[in-house]
């Protein structure tokens, strides 16, 4: 695993959103939505990004797909001609980049234009990219719809999104993301709005298709139990920072960062006989607005001391076997 080729190389990635700035005055107050994130995603693996609401998961996803431009740092994407900083892409090159990187959105009800049929929705990437002839495109759409389990495709092609259930829509969204044959897909909470009985089949579908089409996933979710099934490695985010990163099972069974420990002990377990460990942290996530130069978790951390208070946010360091933690007291 470790010696596999790096597909996405995230270096010191930061995104700051100005707060309450007018048109002519520069804001001095910023939300540090993503700050100094480093992460390498290797070809063929699937990395889970978990964390509480507002910790910057979606923002990270949008930076990787260049729906947003970073404030600083870079994202290098591996192409045939070696790594390319995606911030440098313009015009044609940008359009071509869209063939390699796709995104699946959380809300199956809002991520599809209500006025387009399923056929038009799935064919859109092919049409705007000008891939293939008309007949080839149609074949490709039909093929994709069938592989996401919408069979027979002909009975779905000319329906509108509102005529499908949530699970079916999310399948259409997956088909749309995969229709151009991408290498990398950012999936932003693709199953969080689906019911349990439908969710599992969508999860399975993503996994199967990922293997079949050779897709690398960044799987964003707030549901760690789902992340356990969808990712080889897990990155835990807190207020714009990755605080722990490692093999999924390793992180789940041997969490090292105090935040990860708290997060894991707060997840309800579907077994009435199971006794969870008590959650030891207090308070709840706030917004990272002009944060002080110290550990982001300081206010809530049960282990925090003078050292943490007087030092910068701890670096993400390898604790052995690719298990990275950002904390001074492990």
């Amino acid at each position: 695993m470790t010696n596999k080729e790096v597909l996405v190389d995230i270096k010191h990635l930061s995104k700051l959103f100005p707060m309450g700035s007018g048109m002519f005055q520069r804001s001095k107050v910023f939300v540090y939505a993503v700050s100094d994130v480093n992460l390498q995603i290797r070809k063929g693996e699937s990395v889970g990004l978990v964390g509480e609401s507002g910790c910057g998961k979606t923002t990270t996803g949008k930076l990787l797909t260049r729906l947003l431009n970073p404030t600083s740092g870079s994202v290098d994407f591996q192409t045939e001609n070696g790594p390319v900083d995606i911030a440098s892409l313009r015009g044609k090159a940008m359009k071509k980049f869209r063939r390699h990187v796709q995104m699946i959105f959380q809300d199956p009800y809002e991520s599809m234009n209500p006025r387009l049929t399923i056929n038009d929705t799935v064919a859109e990437p092919l049409n705007v990219q000008g891939i293939g002839s008309l007949v080839e495109r149609e074949d490709r759409v039909v093929q994709l719809l069938e592989s996401v389990g919408l069979t027979p495709a002909s009975s779905f092609l000319f329906r509108y999104p509102h005529e499908l259930s949530g699970g079916q829509r999310q399948r259409v969204a997956i088909a749309r993301a995969l229709v151009v044959g991408p290498d990398f897909v950012v999936a932003d909470e693709p199953t969080s709005m689906l019911d349990v009985s439908v969710r599992t089949s969508v999860m399975q579908l993503m996994e199967d298709l990922g293997e079949k089409f050779g897709v690398t996933y960044l799987y964003i979710t707030h549901d760690i139990a789902v992340a356990r099934y969808m990712s080889d490695r897990l990155a835990v985010m807190y207020l714009g920072k990755i605080v722990e990163l490692g093999d999924t099972e390793e992180v789940l069974h041997h969490p090292l960062h105090p935040y990860t420990k708290a997060l894991l002990s707060a997840v309800p377990v579907p077994d009435p006989l199971h006794q969870r460990e008590p959650v030891v942290i207090k308070g709840q996530v706030s917004k990272p607005i002009n944060p002080l130069p110290r550990c982001r978790f300081y206010e809530r951390c049960p282990l925090a001391d003078k050292f943490c208070e007087t030092h910068d946010h701890p670096p993400l360091e390898d604790q052995g076997a690719g298990h990275y933690v950002a904390c001074y007291h492990i």
Partner: peptide
């Protein structure tokens, strides 16, 4: 709306 972002991801100008 997310479908606008989806269209941009598709490569639409």
């Amino acid at each position: 709306k997310p479908y606008i972002e989806a269209a941009r991801i598709a490569g639409g100008g």
